[in-house]
């Protein structure tokens, strides 16, 4: 399979996933929504593995990493600040507190996932600093 076909199939699968998840959620069936999401993601990964051309290389990985870091910084700051604002305004609207805590927990979850990913990708570098004096 070539890249063009992969992109076309991915768009179709994504559209089907969006429709499937939307309908399932609207009908109050989160289990089906999750199943659709996982099946769709698995299908895309499977299709990607069938592509013979190079899909990602070091340049794409580098720029994707830079973009992801920037998103992490900006979005992390926004939801952290947003959570504080919402929690501070809880006296005005009681549900602001829930919104604030949801944002705060999202920020913490994001930082945790980042920390795990960072730990995983730098696992080969651990202990190198101790070699400085050798």
């Amino acid at each position: 399979m070539d890249k063009k076909k992969f992109r076309s199939y991915s768009v179709v699968i994504s559209a089907l996933m969006g429709a499937g998840v939307g309908i399932s959620v609207a009908n109050g069936k989160p289990g089906i929504a999750l199943a659709v999401l996982l099946t769709g993601q698995w299908s895309i990964y499977w299709l990607k593995s069938r592509v013979k051309e190079v899909m990602e290389d070091e340049m794409i990985t580098m720029y994707a990493g830079k973009a992801a870091k920037k998103v992490f910084e900006i979005f992390g700051l926004l939801i952290s600040a947003g959570s504080m604002v919402f929690i501070a305004l809880k006296s005005r609207e009681p549900y602001f507190e829930y919104v604030g805590y949801t944002l705060a927990f999202s920020a913490v979850t994001m930082v945790l996932i980042y920390a795990i990913a960072y730990y995983y990708y730098t696992r080969g570098l651990r202990g190198l600093m101790s070699d400085d004096n050798e």
């Binding site: 051309e53 190079v54 899909m55 990602e56 290389d57 070091e58 340049m59 794409i60």
Partner: peptide, 14 residues
């Protein structure tokens, strides 16, 4: 060249 070194053509252009 891109195929030989295992990158995309965009990388060679860049």
């Amino acid at each position: 060249l891109a195929e030989k070194v295992g990158v995309t053509r965009q990388t060679i252009i860049a």
